[in-house]
């Protein structure tokens, strides 16, 4: 029997298709404050992105580090059909301030860490900016890119020797005023993570 679980934004997930490690990863991401979803094809991915954009009330979408093919598909769905303004992060460098409200960044993460629920942006200034500046940021990874723990990531770092990297484990937050937890300080006020069951690049 196929169990459908609602991701809250119009997309559907077929639970038994998701590998156990990916499931645990998504659970951990949710604990960390991410919106999460699994997409087994491009239509499902576009549907989730569209749903989240509506839910967050964004007007602009900023792409960073995505393949040309994927970027085109996102433009085709979200710009042409839904009317969103879509920019590559490189085009937006002079107007970063305009991205601080009402925008959603979509970036390519190169790995996920199952044990702690984090997305890894590896040596990629465009993904770094798209995950940092906009009001909301959504990271995309392929299911085979979910690593068990940090020490598997250590192997990846040694192998790739990246210039820089970021591990993102939730939206920006603080507890600096009377230990009250507030989401959205300098980085995104909302964060999303979508694991896909197909090739992204």
């Amino acid at each position: 029997m196929i169990k459908k679980s609602n991701n809250g934004h119009g997309g559907s997930i077929m639970d038994e298709m998701i590998k156990p490690g990916v499931k645990k990863f998504l659970e951990k991401c949710r604990d960390n404050g991410f919106q999460t979803s699994y997409a087994n094809n491009i239509d499902s991915l576009l549907s989730v992105l569209s749903g989240w954009a509506v839910n967050w009330g964004v007007k602009k979408i900023v792409l960073g580090g995505l393949s040309m093919g994927l970027a085109e598909k996102i433009r085709g769905e979200l710009a042409a059909k839904k009317g969103y303004e879509i920019l590559e992060i490189g085009e937006a460098l002079e107007g970063l301030e305009g991205l601080r409200t009402g925008s959603m960044g979509i970036f390519r993460a190169r790995a996920g860490v199952e044990e702690t629920g984090g997305l890894v942006v590896l040596d990629d200034w465009a993904s770094n900016l798209a995950s940092l500046i906009p009001a909301y940021a959504v990271g995309l990874i392929e299911e085979d890119e979910v690593l068990r723990d940090y020490w598997m990531l250590a192997g990846l770092i040694r192998q790739n020797r990246p210039g820089g990297l970021v591990i993102i484990s939730g939206p920006s937050s603080t507890s600096d005023i009377e230990l009250t937890h507030v989401v959205g300080v300098h980085g995104p006020v909302g964060a999303g993570c979508i694991v896909v069951g197909f090739e992204l690049d």
Binding site: K28, E115, S169, S172
Partner: peptide, 10 residues
């Protein structure tokens, strides 16, 4: 288990 960001500067 994790903070929101671990930034690694090369």
């Amino acid at each position: 288990d994790a903070t929101s960001y671990i930034s690694v500067i090369g």
